[in-house]
């Protein structure tokens, strides 16, 4: 069992949890993910690491309630435990192999969308600690859905915010803000985008115009997360790759996003069906036509 040391609500339906998992905390690097299971009947859910503290033995995850299992994770409180917390999985971000020398002159721009802001944080923190220049663009629907802004401000060279409704920062999309920054004379060597698949797709299309090398972190479907099931396969540069062992980060300009988005929805109808059954059951409804079988 993996105790929840701390739980905080970051925004509507988005929760931060600090989990006691010393082995994972010791081995985690930016870019990696973990597999979480709440209890004996739970799914194995992949979540990207949002922070880790080897001294405390803790790993931070941020979860948005989007389905049955993410709701179950978020329903737990500090003091309770997760049944399983396995990782770190996937390959760390490529830049951690670079020396401080190589990093010092480099100019990165990170584009973070929604709950994807959380996994951006350890990457920016790492680069900041190793002397790189890091600008961060955080995008959200509205001001209330912005997360990690204070933490990010502490490690980013410049922090820019974009909201769809203009309630904070730039009024518009992260891609428009990026183009504006470039038009104003900003120059970057590398871009990293983490967020909803649709955002990453459009960031990739945008940065391609500027020949700006771009990395994305794909949140593909997974079962085991260790290379066994192949549910996470994605087409990169015309080749099938496994997100769990070869990713989760890939060259954004090579990823087939349309396929990746379609594959993400593979179990959606099945999950919605189960969620509906669960809601009905909770309401005391007993199915008479066997739909809950």
């Amino acid at each position: 069992m993996y105790p929840i040391l701390e739980k905080r609500r970051l925004a509507e339906g988005i929760y931060l949890m600090k989990i006691l998992a010393p082995r994972v905390a010791r081995s985690a690097r930016p870019g990696q993910f973990v597999i979480v299971r709440t209890d004996e009947r739970g799914e194995r859910i992949p979540l990207t690491v949002a922070d880790y503290d080897p001294a405390q033995g803790s790993v931070t995850i941020v979860t948005q309630t989007i389905g049955v299992s993410t709701r179950r994770i978020c329903s737990l409180d500090a003091g309770q435990s997760l049944a399983d917390f396995a990782g770190p999985l996937g390959r760390p971000s490529e830049f951690i192999a670079l020396s401080d020398e190589e990093l010092r002159g480099k100019r990165f721009v990170f584009i973070a969308g929604g709950v994807g802001t959380a996994p951006v944080y350890p990457q920016v923190k790492w680069l900041h600690e190793h002397g790189a220049q890091v600008d961060v663009i955080i995008g959200a629907k509205t001001r209330d859905m912005l997360i990690f802004t204070d933490a990010m401000r502490a490690v980013a060279t410049n922090l820019y915010i974009a909201t769809d409704d203009g309630s904070e920062g730039f009024h518009g999309l992260v891609t428009q803000l990026l183009e504006k920054l470039i038009a104003e004379g900003k120059r970057y060597d590398e871009c990293v985008a983490i967020g909803p698949m649709i955002m990453m797709k459009f960031v990739a299309l945008t940065t391609k115009k500027y020949a700006l090398r771009t990395t994305v972190s794909l949140n593909a479907l997974m079962v085991d997360g260790t290379g066994m099931c192949g549910a996470c396969r994605v087409t990169v540069g015309g080749k099938t790759r496994f997100t769990c062992v070869e990713g989760p980060e890939f060259d954004a300009h090579e990823v087939d996003f349309d396929e990746a988005m379609r594959r993400q929805g593979m179990y959606r109808s099945e999950e919605q069906r189960r969620a509906a059954i669960e809601a009905e059951r909770a309401a005391g409804h007993k199915c008479r036509i066997g739909l809950d079988q």
């Binding site: 739970g42 194995r44 299992s69 179990y267």
Partner: peptide
């Protein structure tokens, strides 16, 4: 098993 969360198609 409907009591478990993991979907199958």
């Amino acid at each position: 098993d409907a009591d478990y969360d993991t979907p199958i198609y």
